[in-house]
Structure formats: C-alpha cells, structure tokens
Design a protein around this nucleic acid. Structure first.
Lengths: 340, 340
DNA sequence: ATGAAAGCGCTAACAA
DNA sequence: TTGTTAGCGCTTTCAT
C-alpha cells in the first residue's frame, strides 16, 4: 500500500514516470492526435500505475470546453422529474455530455441562485423546467450564449427553445372528456397554485372549458406538504362530506388521485357510476392500484429525450429549426371515467 | 436590448467598466479583503449592469478550491435516495458546499466511470452509496485525498468513513419480531439480489435468524423492473396461489409490500390474523394506505444529514472521530404485524 | 485600500 | 510523431 498523496497527481507526474512530454501524455489520455502505439501503451501504463485522475478544471479552462449540461428542476421527490432526467441521461449518454442536476424547491429566488451557480461553471447547455423565471434568470439565460431548453410547458415565450406539452390544453381536454361523459357536479383538488405554474395552467384550461359549457367548479381544495396519498384521501373525504352531490373529482396529480380512489373504494362508492375520477401524469405507480385511474400522460420521458437532443444537436453545430416543441398528451380513461 | 455576447464576460470587462483593477473587482465579488464602500458599490453596479457571471473554472484552478461534493447513488427512482439527498442538501446549504449528483443504476462499472468523472472535477468530498465497489473505485477513493463517506450501510469496511444502518441487523430484527408474533410459514418477496447488496444483507440477516429458530423460508420470489406496486400485487397473488398455507409475507421494500397489502385486502383476507405483512423503508407513501403496513425505518434523511456533516466538518478542518456511524432503524408494527 | 506579477494544470497552435 | 510556447480567467502573494 503506497502512502496516499497529499498533492493530487498532475500530467507532469505521468510525463516524468513515462519519459514522454506532457503534451504527448495529454494527447494519449484524450485519444487526440497521432501517437505511436508504443508511447501510447507506455503512457497508459504509467497513468494507471500512478492512479492519475485528470484535472478537468484545468482542462476546461485551457480548452474553453465543458462537457456539462445544467439541468434545473423544482424537485426530485415528485416522481415526475426523475423520469425526465432518465430521458435526458439516456440521450446524453452517447454524446460525451453529462447532466448536472440542480434543484429549486419551486422557489424562483432559489432557481436564480442555482442557475447563477451552474452558469458559473460554463456548461454547454441548460435544460430548465418551466417558462416562468425571474427577470434576472431570464437575462442570465439569454446572455449565456449557450443553448437553453425550457421544458415541461409550452404555454408561453421561451428564452430560446422549449419542449413540453400545453397544460392549458391538457386541462381543456380533460374538461371536455368529463363533460362528454355526462358529469356535471365537479370537484377539484390540487396543490396550492402559486408554486406550480403548470398545475395552475391546467386548472385554468379546465375551468374555462367548463365555463364555456355553463359549468362551474362545485367545490375545490388545495393542499401543500405531507404524504400526497394521505392528503388525497383526507381531502376526498372532507369534500364528499361537504358536497355530497358531486359526481366527479378531478385531481391535479396522480398521487392524490390514488389516495382519493382508495378512499372511495373503501366507502363502497360506485366508480365511475356514482362518482368519476381523473388525475394527471400517468405515473407508473397507478398500474398497481385496484382500478385504473383516468389520467393524462405528461410525456415526461420524451420531453427529457427531446430536450437533450436539442442540446446535443446544437452542441454539435447542428441546428434544430423549431423553437417550440409541443408534444401531445394522451388521455387514458382507465376505469374511473365513463367513455362518451 | 443589448446584443447577446459571443464571448462571456470576464473580470477584465468589469474592471474596465468600473475603472478599478481586476484584483479589486475580484475582492469585491468574493467579499474578501478590505475594499472601500465606494469602490464596492461601483464594482457591484458594473458587474450587475453587464450581467457578469464569474468563471468558477478559472477561480477553482487558481485557488485550488472547489466547493462541490460528489454524491453518487444507484438511482433516483427509488424514493429512498431523494430523501437522502434532501438530508444532504439541508446540511450543506449553510456551508458553502454544493452537492453534485451522479447516478450509477446499480452498475459497478458505471459507478467507477461516474466516480472517475466526478473526481476529475476535484470535489471537496465524496458521498457514495454502499460499501461495495470495484477495486479501482476503492483505489480512487483512497487516493483522492478528500473526505469520503460511504452511506446507507455499515456492514463492511469503509474506505474512510461510513454512515448508515446494519441491514443484517435490520433483517434479524424483523425476523425476531415475526417469530415472536407467532408466525411460522413465511414467504419472502424482493428485488433480484446481485444488484442490491443492502437488500441481500437484509435477506441474509432475516433467513439466518429464522434458521436459528428452526424456520426456513417457505416460499420466495424475486423480481426486477416494472411498477413495484403492480409487481407486489402479482407476486403476492402468485405466491398465495402456490403456497396457500403461508401465514406471513416479508417484502424487501415498501412499494411491493403496499401492492401485496392492497391485493390481500381486496381478497378479504384477515390481516394480520390469517396473514401478516411487513416491508422495509418507511416511505411516506405508506401513510395513505388503507392499513398501516409494518415496516422498518431506514433513517434515510438522517443518513444524509450525518454524511454531509462529516464532509462539512472535515472540510472545515474539524475531525469527526469515529469512522463508522451506525444508526438504529426502528420497527413500526403498523396494522399488519401482531405485537408479541 | 489598491495594484502588479506569477502561476494554478491543462490544451491550442505552431515548430521540428 | 513529438515537443515547445503561450495562454485560458482567475486568485495568491507581495508591493505600494
């Protein structure tokens, strides 16, 4: 066992150990330029023997190139964003680019801080959730000089490019399906709005479409914090107590919808006869529930893939044409929403 | 609207714009050294007006200091790791250190790659899940010269420091509780083992303790992929079909346990009389289930906090004494495991 | 309180 | 195919 070095090894150490110039060592380690097979192996051996780990900081400064892509999302606990992330990783995997994740907790000021922090590492691109940012954040993005992809949402003006679905349209589609199925007394449950613009837009699309059909939300409740499943259960119980004549419940996310579903089944309520249910996201979790909850797929993985593709293309000098990539969510009726 | 710059701004630009030397600008932007209030504001204004974003790459190279902590985990979809991460973020928040996440997908070679990649950015510390790594990974960690904390598990030899629970002991505790409650025909369901050392250790602790009491696992099944909730449901149905005389089902994680619970309730099976259930992790999700599933808390948030604390302390020059931080999981009987 | 000079460890560009 | 020379944009150190 050799003694752990206080000073990390440098190219110079490998150069001396292998009797080859630093420049050539650098070339070998990056597989760049022509190097004879002989020196190649000599260098590789020395590097491995010493346990050399290159210093990307120095490399990045010298080459003015950083293979990082900043990915800025509101939360990791949401089930939704990990899926977007795997879409991103999947595509970046074979491009030499690497995602680096920053979390904002849905706070605009924290987003600004995280963005500033990440931009100061001079990444090759930014993927950031949502179209709503502070003035300063938008300015930073616009000034950054690197490809910027805003994801999840297309209802608004992107700084550069966006990939997502229209949440207003998603809300509208769901409202139409519910109306067409004959439901009329509709309750809504969701997260507290100011935090989540996409939930807000779905709600807007939803209520406006109902309004056009002369229907008003009969009851509504908003929550924050705690186990979403438990919250869904509690809110549903409370709402049905308060407004026993409701014939439909629309939930802003699948977890609270699942909680509501479990509650209603326990109460022996006829679904979707007496009460219909629908939610939003299409998370995998729903597959294990006693009934298939009606929901709308948010195209999470595909959003991640497309966003990463845009970054990769632009990084490779290819242009991607369109600045708005609008995907189409699909409605799953499941067992809790009557078909028209 | 000024034209977006092709070349990112440098200290020099701010220096010229404010009529102050680069050095002084640098001092202002880092709040270091004595600078008169007058120049301070002058510089701040110029920086803000120009939209200057410092270049951390150059800063890190010059100062030989990087405020990043590499966090390497197997997956983000697991519900478990996001919680560990928030424990980490929470503590690092007020230390000036920033977590950077790398994901290994439970693959040792990918872990090695990710580790190499992250170490090449010369972080101030490493937090990495598990005690099992490739030879090369261990060597890199040992050679890195920075604090290394292996988390989640304490059954083994840490390279440097570890923070976690003993999964063998967790398995043993659960086996003892089940035996004491009088159950005898026990079925096990879990993930395919080779991927997950901690699940494997729990299983080992579990079976050994049963063996000492003269009990053998009566049936077992392992899965991989798919919706865990649905898998739990399917596996439970299949197992009870196959082995109708089972009186207890132990699941290696809460999601499949929840799936099993939902299935059994639908079948009208008496829980915990006819069949008892228990799982592992204590995830928040369980709060919304019709019955409280017996489980064992894995101390996820606390593990994150302690690990981050170790890094922060060592980074600040403080020594943390012990190299093994063993936390104690607590057993929650819930409604699905008879008390002794 | 401010500035000037000398690198940090690497790579681009050129030379041999 | 290999080596040499200048930086990359900042911070450290030492003057002033």
């Amino acid at each position: 066992m050799t003694h752990p070095p206080k000073r990390p090894l440098t190219l110079r150490d490998v150069s001396e150990a292998s009797g080859v110039s630093e420049m050539t060592v650098s070339r070998v380690l990056r597989n760049k330029g022509d190097v004879s097979e002989a020196t190649r192996t000599k260098v590789r051996e020395a590097a491995k023997r010493l346990g050399y780990v290159p210093n990307k900081i120095a490399g990045a400064l010298a080459s003015q190139r950083v293979n990082l892509v900043a990915v800025i999302i509101p939360s990791l606990k949401n089930m939704v964003f990990p899926e977007v992330l795997s879409g991103i990783s999947e595509v970046l995997e074979d491009t030499g680019l690497q995602p680096v994740v920053g979390v904002t907790d849905y706070l605009p000021e924290k987003e600004e801080k995280v963005l500033f922090e990440m931009l100061s590492w001079r990444p090759s691109g930014v993927i950031i959730a949502g179209l709503e940012h502070t003035e300063a954040s938008r300015a930073m993005l616009a000034q950054s000089g690197i490809p910027v992809v805003e994801i999840m949402d297309v209802d608004g003006e992107p700084v550069d490019t966006c990939v997502g679905i229209s949440h207003r349209r998603a809300g509208r589609m769901m409202a139409e399906a519910i109306i067409n199925a004959g439901y009329r007394k509709i309750g809504f449950m969701g997260t507290k709005m100011p935090l989540d613009h996409r939930a807000r837009k779905r709600f807007e699309g939803f209520t406006r479409t109902l309004a056009k059909a002369g229907i008003e939300i009969a009851d509504q409740e908003f929550y924050s914090g705690g186990s979403a499943l438990a919250k869904g259960r509690e809110m549903t119980a409370a709402m049905l107590e308060r407004s026993p004549d409701l014939d439909f419940l629309y939930y802003s996310n699948d977890m609270i919808g699942a909680g509501g579903l479990l509650y209603l089944l326990e109460q022996g309520i006829d679904i979707p006869g007496q009460v219909g249910l629908a939610a939003f996201n299409g998370v995998e979790l729903l597959d294990g529930l006693p009934r298939q909850l009606a929901t709308m797929d948010a195209c999470r993985r595909e959003i991640g893939q497309r966003a990463a593709q845009v970054i990769a293309d632009r990084h490779g000098g290819r242009d991607t044409g369109e600045s708005v990539h609008s995907l189409s969510p699909t409605l799953a009726y499941g067992d809790t929403l009557r078909r028209p």
